[in-house]
């Protein structure tokens, strides 16, 4: 009788297995096969795909490039998002209008926005270079020079996802108790001191949450790269997700791309766990101390 209660858990468990575990287990199985365009099916290739991956410098370069891209864009999004949230947190004119306006980039489809941005950055036909020309800065090779192309991808990512940071941080700011701010005012603290000693520490937990959520998303940057640069010039903007897409979808190396994906998953899980711990120590416990 006592054991029968576990039967009630079965539907949920089955759904969990079907939705999460099965694809994961299947991917693990595929990664130990050499399934590709000329060897279809699930043969046993042992660890050949993983051995090949170890020597694939393009994969590791893409991983390093992604780390740089993700860390720099998420940090910029955090700073800008926090700034915008502080701006509309207080009573300012047309506050509601600005709150909605700041969310517009996030509500648009990444692929569509990447197409729009590609048009903006287009060095012959886009509007950005004529504007820069008019300002005396001069036209820039946005998509044809490695450094500029990387910057272009960063700009689109920051533009698209800063509103997400803004939304979470604004929600955090609105939930803060008013007493510490009253106490700071009584003690004569100015705006900067109040921010550093009251607002920022109290926002530690929500900041960590927002950064981690964005970091998880940023670790999968794909659409922007696909549409904007196709990983070029050369391989200067190729991220891991895009590289796996090339190997899996374009080259039809199903087994190899599964091995790349799993390794990527593990690396990201470990890296994000370490980042989370470090952020908690720095921004939550540090602030409490």
């Amino acid at each position: 009788m006592y054991r029968q209660k576990y039967i009630f858990l079965l539907p949920g468990l089955l759904v969990l297995i079907a939705v999460i575990l099965f694809p994961l287990i299947f991917t693990i199985r595929v990664s130990f096969s050499s399934w590709d365009v000329y060897n279809p099916g699930l043969n046993n290739a042992g660890g050949a795909m993983y051995a090949r991956m170890w020597e694939d410098s393009r994969y590791w370069e893409a991983l390093w490039r992604l780390s740089l891209l993700a860390v720099s864009t998420v940090l910029m999004q955090y700073v800008l998002g926090f700034g915008l949230a502080l701006l509309v947190w207080r009573e300012i004119a047309a506050r509601r209008f600005f709150r909605v306006l700041f969310l517009v980039p996030m509500m648009t489809t990444p692929v569509v926005m990447s197409v729009i941005w590609r048009t903006i950055f287009h060095e012959s036909l886009g509007p950005l270079n004529p504007i820069l020309d008019a300002l005396g800065i001069g036209a820039q090779p946005w998509l044809s020079q490695p450094g500029f192309a990387f910057a272009a991808v960063m700009i689109v990512e920051i533009w698209q996802w800063t509103p997400f940071m803004f939304l979470l941080l604004l929600a955090g700011l609105l939930s803060l108790p008013s007493e510490p701010f009253l106490a700071a005012r009584v003690d004569g603290a100015g705006p900067i001191r109040t921010f550093l000693s009251v607002t920022f520490p109290m926002m530690g937990a929500i900041s960590v949450g927002a950064i981690l959520i964005r970091a998880i998303e940023a670790s999968k940057i794909m659409e922007t790269v696909y549409v904007l640069t196709s990983g070029g010039p050369g391989t200067s903007t190729e991220t891991v997700s895009y590289y796996i897409y090339i190997r899996g979808m374009r080259d039809f190396q199903i087994g190899y791309s599964a091995a790349l994906s799993l390794t990527y998953l593990i690396i990201m899980a470990v890296a994000l766990t370490l980042i989370a711990k470090a952020l908690v120590r720095l921004m939550v416990r540090g602030a409490q101390a």
Binding site: D36, V37, Y38, R58, P146, G232, P233, G234, T235, S236, I246, R250, D251, F252, Q253
Partner: peptide, 22 residues
């Protein structure tokens, strides 16, 4: 030939490296 996508993908990546000066 079988795997033409992989051959051409490899070729394009190599040419792109030369184009970008890598």
């Amino acid at each position: 030939v079988p795997g033409v996508g992989e051959f051409m993908s490899s070729l394009a990546a190599g040419v792109a490296r030369a184009q970008s000066g890598e």
